[in-house]
Design a protein around this nucleic acid. Structure first.
Lengths: 236, 236
DNA sequence: CCTGCACTAAGTACAGCGTACGTAGTAGTC
DNA sequence: GACTACTACGTACGCTGTACTTAGTGCAGG
């Protein structure tokens, strides 16, 4: 009998092909693409082993020959999305390059709204994640700082972008599991907030909302946030 | 027959007691505390309606009289954790106060390792979240800036702390679902990373790891990150 | 060449989940 | 005291991840 189930190993260290037996019907990329397709179309919660298998056109349990655990499927998805990162020759202007990195990451996450929810440091070992990290370091070559500082820079910028976009998209992703619509959800929450503010218990928040009435320009806020992170690591 | 299931309303707007019928056996706090106890002891994934009901000593479906949806249970948990935030009289030194806020939030998340995973802007309307936000604004009174800027400051600091602690604790929370131990997981991932670095495909990362050999001082990194955020919002 | 074995593929089954629904019992109101 | 809104709880359904079994395929060694 073959070794079954999960053994402690990273999916990337698992050889895709072992040489013996019939040729696998699908590649790892096929599986990742199918999962990404489902997540894009029907939300992350629709990504189940059964649905991915159905999308591929194979039996549910056959998937386990390629992906030992559901968790590994997520890891494949994150890496597949990471493949969409466009890498360029660093321009010599590290601020401009990093700004471009941040914007691109945000766009990527808008294209795949499930991505922020899956973002985790433990997926930072995937092939495309490593390529991406190396590219960021290359963009930071003109910056005079220790590698440790640069790593912290990249981590902070990435973290800020992820957190920001997550906040942008959170309700949109969550709302798929709600028994009512996103508009209803927002209306209900805003009405509740309004009642709380009006209670007078939170004077500064009341002032804040009075001062900044009207819709928020998410683009402008994002750009300001990125600039602040860049400032935080620029030599004084 | 009573109105059943979920209607579009925030849990906080739902009255805890309506007057008619038998007295409810549990308060909302009881339920939140039970869920938090389970999450602390056995991880977030152990927080199921069945387990929480069992912890309370009631039938599973009775829970739905108090908590219309699982999601609302999470919201109660986040608010219950937020109740542990200690609020103080602002000192007049906004940097000192915000540093203290950041450290306290981190400690809170270390006490409840499931908290970062549940952190979401949509939970920012809970009573203790509002209190916390008002307190942060009070701490920022000495800072000369528009309320909009202060809100962005608070969001960025909170986001940074959440992301950081999430990265600290992520594997620890995830590992409960893994079929092997955290040590094995780490060993496997580090071995893989080492192999990739050694391949020569990532020269800057190799240099970075060569330069910063040895364990990372998580406390020091955290303090540096906080300081950078404070710097980013300090007047020049 | 053939035999054997390592692998893939697929089906069945199980424990656990969130929760819709029906029923029984309780306590405040008229 | 009757009505009625409410609480409490059991059953049941469709979904999940995945352990295990069986059948079939194709490369490797003799």
């Amino acid at each position: 009998m073959a070794v079954r189930g999960a053994v402690p190993e990273v999916i990337w260290a698992r050889p895709e092909r072992t040489g013996r037996g019939p040729k696998p019907a699908y590649t790892r990329d096929d599986i990742a693409a199918a999962a990404v397709r489902i997540a894009d179309a029907r939300g992350l919660d629709a990504v189940s082993m059964r649905h991915v298998a159905a999308e591929l056109g194979c039996g549910t349990m056959s998937l386990y020959n390629y992906v030992p655990r559901k968790e590994d499927l997520y890891e494949l998805m994150v890496d597949a999305a990471g493949a969409e990162h466009e890498l360029w020759e660093p321009s010599g202007d590290w601020r401009g390059d990093m700004r471009r990195v941040a914007r691109q990451t945000r766009e990527l996450m808008h294209r795949h709204p499930w991505l922020p929810r899956l973002m985790s440091p433990v997926y930072g070992f995937s092939p495309h994640a490593l390529r991406y990290l190396e590219h960021c370091l290359a963009c930071l070559d003109p910056l005079e700082a220790a590698y440790g500082t640069k790593m912290e820079f990249i981590a902070m910028l990435n973290g800020m972008v992820t957190t920001y976009v997550r906040n942008e998209l959170d309700t949109a992703e969550r709302v798929r599991a709600l028994p009512w619509s996103e508009d209803e959800e927002n209306a209900v929450r805003i009405a509740h907030l309004g009642r709380q503010i009006a209670s007078g218990a939170y004077p500064r928040m009341a002032a804040a909302f009075a001062q900044d009435a009207g819709p928020i320009d998410l683009e402008a806020v994002f750009e300001r946030m990125v600039e602040r992170v860049l400032d935080a690591f620029a030599p004084r």
